[in-house]
Amino acid sequence: MNTKQLFQTLVAPFLGILLFLAIWQIGAPKIVTSLGAVPGPVQVFEQFTGLIDEHQAARQKEVEFYQRQEERNATALAEDPNAEVSIRPYTGKATFFDQIVTSIVTVMTGFVLAGFIAIPLGIVAGLSQTVYAALNPLIQLFKPVSPLAWLPIVTMIVSAVYVSDDPTFDKSFINSALTVLLCCLWPTIINTTVGVANISKDLQNVSKVLRLSWWTHVRKIVLPSAIPMIFTGLRLSLGIAWMVLIAAEMLAQNPGLGKFVWDEFQNGSSNSLGRIMVAVIVIGLIGFALDRGMLLLQRQVSWDKSAALR
């Protein structure tokens, strides 16, 4: 690595971050909101450690919660050996880190489901002009719809359809996951369709000469050659999914990072701004990590290791 490369790959990003932090630290105290001055990076970091402490305290409470239950059950059994006892799940609040996990699980659920729908649909649409013609107006119509518009519809339909006395999943989880699904279907469908439709004529001819069955054709020719485009679609979808989820959680008060941000905004305490900033940074980092994860996966499954992937 020569000096210039070293500078570009290591020093420049570091300087960029440093400069940003400096501007932030100097500029923040100058803006005074009704919740006090805007916190600088140092204060935000303090809030972050505060959130860790809070998380540990909550875990401690959880342990106590289970202990109490066991004691109660023991007393109940001592009084009446036939008493029905059970251990209930912890009911305490979800900490910041719990909300992160919830958000990631939700986004992945919606995203994976969307993938299972979008990729086959995209393949069929890419292979058949007729299916494409039938699907295209719908895709064009629904693609630009904001998640916030889907949310009320999803909520109403889920509460009407998903009726169960002992639901496996929370309605709020299903609402969020479905909203994510609806919003991240489209880029994957479109890119898969394009990828499949643009398979080289030569390869199609090979398939014809070999008289490959439809299924073998899809498996051996279509899928591998459309993989780069499918992944382009999936990465776009995942990016959208993550943004949509945060918005949906804020609006519908579904558990997750979005709710954390909204709750903190509503709390209006002197810590709130700092905590929201922690959340913003974490949301960004997770979004970045999700994208990198997809990239790694793409490298893993793509045959073309030499292609420049960014």
């Binding site: 009911t91 909520t155 509460s159 929370d170 309605k171 509503q266």
Partner: peptide, 22 residues
């Protein structure tokens, strides 16, 4: 009783939550 307490965004969301069983 094992109760979970959840803050709601506004009174309408809260009422809807009770109505639809969330």
């Amino acid at each position: 009783l094992f109760v979970k307490l959840e803050a709601q965004a506004n009174w309408k969301v809260l009422l809807d939550g009770v109505v639809d069983g969330q």
